[in-house]
Simulated scan of single mutants.
Amino acid sequence: MGRNLQTGERLRPVDLARRHGLSTQAIRNYEEAGILPAAGRTPTGYRTYTPLHAGALRAFLALVPGHGHRTATSVMQAVNRGADDAAFRLVDESHAQLLDDRRTLQAVEVALRDLGPAPAAGPAASGPGDTFIGPLARRLGIRPATLRKWEHAGLVHPRRDPQTGYRVYDEAAVRDARLAHQLRRGGYLLEQIAPLIAQVRAAGGLEPLEGALGDWHARLSARGRAMLTGAAELDAYLRERG
């Protein structure tokens, strides 16, 4: 069993702040947000903290790199109001998202591994692999406006039907849209994706994306490691809280 740290050493806001490289205002903000338990008060009204508050702060700061500020905040708020199961669910959801991101990366790699040279532009008439903006957007789970934005950024190049003026996405454009969607899921910006897709079109292979995929792998691994660190600090805080 952990010791009960709600008694013993008393810490001023400045003490807690200095130990973690923060401002005293940040400490007050964290308390007001429910990230830290409520502080004690001196007879004159000054806040006092204990090592238990320091443990809560360590847990929060350790959770942020793996789960993000918003989720880390929600986890600590749940823990501090005694809703441990709600906090564990939030942690589980982050792990599920990381697993989904790993699967997305794997899907990108599989798609690119079999990627051949982009086919030449076909005739104006629709081909067997052609589709319009609405069906393609639904297939990807995005809005048609997003596809138009990608087109403006140079990520996809649909042709126009000469009779209706509608956008027509051939197999190459569909491939580019799928690749753009997967890379956006991986956290890449449009300006980062556009040159990659341009290189893939020209090279017709995985090589142009090897560096980006390696970086993506590294970032997912760093998130996974950070989640382990966050879990350890959260467990320590729960044990000390009792």
Rank of each mutant, 00 (worst) to 15 (best):
A87C: 08
Y169N: 08
E93A: 14
P128T: 11
I197G: 03
V108M: 09
L22V: 03
D215P: 00
F132C: 00
L11K: 13
G129I: 02
A86Y: 08
P208L: 06
H20C: 07
Q163F: 01
R47A: 04
Q106A: 13
F88N: 07
G230C: 09
D114G: 15
E233S: 10
L63V: 01
A120D: 14
L5K: 10
A39E: 02
L115M: 11
L196R: 09
P158T: 00
L140C: 09
A56C: 06
A173S: 12
I197Q: 05
A236W: 10
R241H: 05
Q77P: 02
R178D: 13
S23R: 05
A38D: 07
Y237K: 10
H95A: 14
I193Y: 10
L112N: 08
G211V: 03
R175P: 00
V79Q: 12
R70S: 11
E151Q: 14
P135F: 12
E210Y: 00
I197V: 11
W150D: 03
E240Y: 12
A26S: 12
R81K: 15
Y169Q: 08
L155N: 02
N80I: 12
A39T: 11
E93Y: 12
A96C: 01
Q6M: 13
G242L: 04
E191Y: 13
L105P: 03
R184Y: 00
L16H: 09
T44I: 01
A72M: 07
G129H: 15
T44G: 13
A120V: 07
G8L: 08
P195V: 08
V108H: 01
N29E: 02
M227R: 15
R89P: 00
L179F: 09
R113E: 02
A124R: 08
Y188F: 14
H53K: 11
L155Q: 03
E207F: 06
Y237E: 01
L213C: 03
H20T: 04
R239S: 06
Q77C: 11
Y188R: 08
T50I: 04
N29T: 10
L147M: 10
V168P: 13
P195I: 07
R239C: 05
L213N: 08
P117Q: 12
G122I: 07
P158M: 04
L90C: 06
S23M: 02
H157K: 13
M76V: 07
P13W: 11
I133C: 05
A203I: 01
A177N: 04
R58L: 06
L190S: 12
L57D: 04
E240W: 13
P123Y: 04
R175N: 09
G186K: 04
L147P: 04
E31K: 10
R241F: 09
A177V: 05
K149Y: 06
R113V: 00
T24C: 00
E240M: 14
G204D: 15
I193E: 09
R219P: 00
F60A: 04
T229S: 14
I133F: 06
E210W: 03
A222V: 06
I133E: 02
P123I: 03
